[in-house]
Amino acid sequence: MPRILPTELFALLSKHVGQDSAGMELRWLRAAARDPHHLQSLVSRRTSGEPLQYILGTQPFGPLELLTRRPVLIPRPETEHWTLRLAELIHPSSQDPISLLDLCTGSGCIPLLLCHLWPPGSVQAVGADISSDAIQLAVENAHRCGIHVSTFHSLLRATDSNGNTFTPLLADIRSLDFAQSSALRSPFHLITSNPPYITHEDYAKLSPSVKAYEDPRALLGDPQPTPYGKGLTFYHDIAKLAAREGFLARNGVVAVEVGIGQAEDVQRIFQEEGRLRETEIWRDPWEVQRVVIGRR
């Protein structure tokens, strides 16, 4: 039951996140706090810039509640929105299972939500990330969501296991031998990714809540700093993977999240370098072009 709080806490939070959000954030922090003293310490973490999701330790993502832990990228509402939409677009079944590769998987939010929403035995997912913190968290999240974690990826398992499986893969998706990794069993029917896409120029201007807490490897679109970089490095790599013989299945789909203003560039990269003839752009709920879909 809500009770009136010391107005100082509310005022402190208001200054930091605005009055509209302060009321809500205070309610959520209060629900997480053990006692008034603890609440005060949670509020002070928040006002010093720590993201709410790290303080609370979880973030809802569709019907799932995922663990969030510094420095792994916090799942965003835009990603939740398009993943739910993708889940409606593709209809795998246990008779007709698909193989899914999620690049830069982070908390595992995209493949885990798809594994949760699609019927049991219909999807075998691999989630790759360069960060061991991310891979560790993705595995914990899979367990938390009741999704079977398998060390080796193989579509053959789909028929003999009752559930969907998630295979974590600690790897650099940009390295030349990534596609030959023994953990990958191509072809994939679906490749998803929310790769880092922020330009160095934008990164400098980000809120400290993002910059000081979340892994720059999950945010910076051009790992090697270039003054005029457009944050598109990973899209070139993803397009090259998709173009590899036998990597993306016939009629396979590639779905990637993009930053504001990048959709058309990524669309062109997909067409020119990814051998993806049919492409489409999806908008997020705020009307920003947010996702590029490519079909073989």
Binding site: D20, S209, W286
Partner: peptide
């Protein structure tokens, strides 16, 4: 009609504020 409220600026990875 389903609408989201408040602007998120660039949104996506740029922003980690809860906007639900």
């Amino acid at each position: 009609r389903i609408e989201v409220m408040r602007s998120r600026g660039a949104g996506g990875q740029h922003v980690n504020k809860t906007e639900s």
